[in-house]
Design a protein around this nucleic acid. Sequence first.
DNA 1: GCGAAACTTAGCCAATTGGCTCACTTTTTA
DNA 2: TAAAAAGTGAGCCAATTGGCTAAGTTTCGC
Lengths: 123, 123
Amino acid sequence: MVIQMAKHDPSLDRLFHALSDPTRRGIVERLLAGPASVSDLAAPTGMALPSVMKHLAVLEDSGLVTTEKAGRTRLCRLRPEPLDHARNWIDEQRRIWEARLDRLDDYVTRLMEERAHGTRPQD
Amino acid sequence: MVIQMAKHDPSLDRLFHALSDPTRRGIVERLLAGPASVSDLAAPTGMALPSVMKHLAVLEDSGLVTTEKAGRTRLCRLRPEPLDHARNWIDEQRRIWEARLDRLDDYVTRLMEERAHGTRPQD
DNA sequence: GCGAAACTTAGCCAATTGGCTCACTTTTTA
DNA sequence: TAAAAAGTGAGCCAATTGGCTAAGTTTCGC
């Protein structure tokens, strides 16, 4: 059996980076309600269009958003799958952490039993 | 009953930002195995100590890591609770997304039934 | 108590980010 | 067909990031 070291995953870099900005999380939350144009997304932010376009580029790069041009407007849609990727990473860390706590607990329990019986731990 | 708009949460900014760098995720993964000194954390990265310290500062700022000085070394510990915060945000988005898909599905279903009965949707 | 170890502080640097404006293209609509 | 709407590209700017080195400081071990 081969133990796999979790490779550093550039897609996680881009995903967490995309989520680290409140404007971008706001866009994600807006797109939960359904597709929207660039102007729709810009309106509540009060930002200039080109600024919002940069945020959209980051979101597209992370895979969270896809866009398509229809006439003179560009429609933006949420693609929630990458969120699962982030969630899986987080869950994995949690799982490893809990497993370690369990081992620690076992260890301490055994230590206390050994002491109670006057024996000593094997190094 | 008051519908609460999810306030933009600066702690999520800091948390996602902390997780967006592969070196920092590597440190988190290393700390899952137990506390470590700054030098311990620096060794596998091949980076200079001050660089690692900057990453640690970001991780501390996010709440993912706490450190305490003991003699001339600083011991770093993982504090996994903030991961739950990120997870909760992600789960919430997922939940909202699924709920919308359900409503869409209901809508389409009703539309098709109405068509089948020769009636027309109420706008 | 002196040298090595383990940070720590300050500051340099190039690249990136996150905002902007201004000029331009494309598409729609009056 | 001319003007308005919607987006796009270029480029400016200040702040932040992510690396470094060089020069402290504090603590440990001989």
